[in-house]
Write a protein that binds this DNA or RNA. Structure first.
Lengths: 245, 245
DNA sequence: CGAATCTTTGATGCCGTTCAACAGCTGTGG
DNA sequence: CCACAGCTGTTGAACGGCATCAAAGATTCG
């Protein structure tokens, strides 16, 4: 599996959310400054995963949520046929495990797409802290509500939109999430393979590849492998219509 | 819209969850008996809807969740094209509005498929009560988690399963939810039209109709209109594989 | 009883899958 | 350093499941 790193052994890494560059995206945004200290008692920073390692697996007892600090995570559930269905991609500042809040076991598995570091939120501590901080409880509801909305948006994509529309929407979603992190909204380095995009969007790999090529030829994007440049954002928006996530 | 009925005007309807036949399915199952009284302060029973009326509409300010007491409700979201995408069907004992918990506005609209009665849970009261009752807070997380799981299950249906499989899974889901209410698990009276089934499952109406006819001819079910009898549950299970909801 | 809605059935065609093959990239080991 | 395997991405050809179009029967309800 994965290994914890004693925080003390990394002197240059200030522990605590206060100094984290993602604190404006992550859970700390829910609490006031004087409450921040009690939140930090819940957080265990410095949880590292190599590419392909799991943060948790479906059906394991649910213990923690994790904030992505760097890298990228995919979550997926297994169908009874043993196929995997990707339910989401999570970038730095985003939190995984909320779909299991309140459940006994993890509802999905979470796997690193590349070398990633996470912060761990112990669920039992988070729950009892939420008893004391109304803001936090409210924010947890909000985060879960967002999970539902994202999943419903995915359902709409899958049931009503063509391959072109799904892929355009996904590129725009990634773009807006990149720009939240103050990265370029047009020069994307995708953390996931075509295979994963296809799985997530309910398409065949070949279809994803063909659509990307077509987008490239029609001037909407430039793409070579995982490096994608959005050349005509408005054109993509016109295609996607329903902005995913 | 819809109208409240002063509880006093319905003497035969005992107010309060204690006497409700659905209390074992609904929110009261989260709290102990001595806590039940405080929960009842949150609940406003006797909220009636005629067929086609809305309990709430997407983007209205979020105020309440509603437990279905009788009838049936569909929830749906609007795509930017104005099409509707049904996100769930809710039967007695089930609760609508949890996908909006913590949000400012309703994430979806809720419409009665037939004459229905609801119990209203005011969100602000529920939230502050959850501050006091850890069990309740935990149960709310659990209910939201279930919403996520259901939505993810729908996504799997939409992206990986054929029309036959989706319809088999839906019939089985309805069957198990009927039997939870101590109704026959094989003699179903569907509260929704083919149109709604098709929309929910991401299919054309004609496909739903054809599949139902095919199921009938192959002895899996008997169907005339909304009256469906499951004749070969195991056969349906073999088809569906991934049991929805 | 007639209008509207719902359901079913048939014919046709398209979008995306499937099958197949190849090219590029990366890491490994002789 | 190169050969080879494994993975990833692209492209082509053919098939098929489901949508679309069209229309007729069934049901509901004012």
């Amino acid at each position: 599996m994965s290994r914890r790193i004693a925080t003390e052994s990394i002197p240059r890494l200030k522990p605590g959310c206060e100094y984290c560059s993602l604190s404006k995206l992550c859970l700390p945004l829910a609490v006031s400054e004087d409450e921040l200290e009690s939140l930090e008692n819940v957080v265990h920073p410095g949880y590292n995963l190599d590419r392909g390692e799991h943060a948790f697996r479906q059906r394991e007892p649910f213990r923690s949520c994790y904030a992505v600090r760097s890298g990228a995570i995919k979550t997926y559930i297994l169908t009874d046929r043993g196929e995997e269905q990707i339910t989401g991609f999570y970038l730095p500042g985003e939190i995984i495990g909320f779909d299991s809040m309140g459940a006994d076991n993890y509802a999905c598995s979470a796997k690193a797409l590349e070398r990633s570091s996470l912060c761990e939120f112990a669920f039992d501590k988070m729950e009892s802290l939420a008893q004391q901080l109304p803001n936090l409880q409210h924010h947890l509801f909000q985060l879960m509500s967002n999970e539902i909305k994202n999943s419903q948006t995915l359902s709409v994509q899958l049931s009503k939109h063509t391959a072109d529309e799904r892929i355009a929407a996904m590129l725009l979603s990634l773009s807006s999430r990149f720009s939240r992190r103050r990265l370029s909204p047009t020069e994307l380095t995708l953390p996931m393979a075509r295979h994963d995009i296809a799985n997530y969007l309910g398409l065949a790999v070949e279809t994803v590849s063909r659509v990307m090529t077509r987008f490239h030829k029609s001037g909407l994007i430039e793409a070579q492998g995982r490096n994608v440049t959005l050349k005509d954002v408005e054109g993509l928006q016109a295609l996607s219509i329903q902005g995913a996530q």
